[in-house]
Amino acid sequence: MSDATHREGSFFGRLGQIFSAGPAKPGDSFGAPGVGNSTTIAIASALGIFFLWWVTTTPALGPMVKPLFLPSPAEVWDKFVSVATEGYQDQTLAEHTFASVQRIFIAFVLAALFGIPIGMAMATNRVFRGFFDPPIEFYRPLPPLGYLPLTIIWFGIGETQKLVLLFLAMFAPMVLNTRAGVRSVAIEQIHAAYSLGASRAQVLWHVILKGAMPEILTGMRIGIGFGWTTLVAAELVATERGLGAMIMSASEFLVTSVVIMGIVVIGIIAYSFDLLMRWIERKVVPWKGRV
């Protein structure tokens, strides 16, 4: 029964077809995992979740969940409008958002500036590898909330401490992915470059860095994702400005609608950033996975 043409009849055969496509369209390769478009399903899934939220919280239908735990979509929207126009804790939503995006962006640039060269150095030089491996591998699995107190003791409660925390969250994935990228460069390409008269530095720049580019971009994508994950922790103490700060103070006063609104805004911005990174990826490394 393994013959593909005999699969259609049975129930399990039909079920199987959802998960295994037929022969590939021209331009695709057969058997590549997860080919095909999932946009429709994704939209349906998002709408489903939203509908569930609406049904369980809207008073007209007799809310199943108290607004303290989960306010209705309408309530959250009203809050969004009021915070956007009047502000929350003397700051408008735009100001909160700008403060957070600025922090993440600065930390991201710093992490890329240090993480990518250090990753390259570690991958291509045993001295650097030996030197940087222990500290990075030690702190990498620690949760940011774990070393948050230490960053406060060391850097105080000002802007620096927040940037340090975000930087640390983004730095490790960039280093690791850069290293993986360098390892993924085919040795034949390196040999070919040397045989064409390239120097060591030229090979590093024109072959290894370029060849590692797909993984480096993945590292940047993962890094910025980690940044957003760490945002609330970074804005936990001594700041009024920032989406994370807004969420934390709203939770203290049990203003659940602001908490949810803040979460949604962070989610939307983080997702937009990811889409942007993916777009950049397609532009910068169109050859990814095609050789």
Partner: peptide, 19 residues
Amino acid sequence: LGPGADRGVVFQKHALLPW
């Protein structure tokens, strides 16, 4: 003493630079 432009190499797998 090492590879150089005076000896060109053609590989079994082309080893071109896809970028």
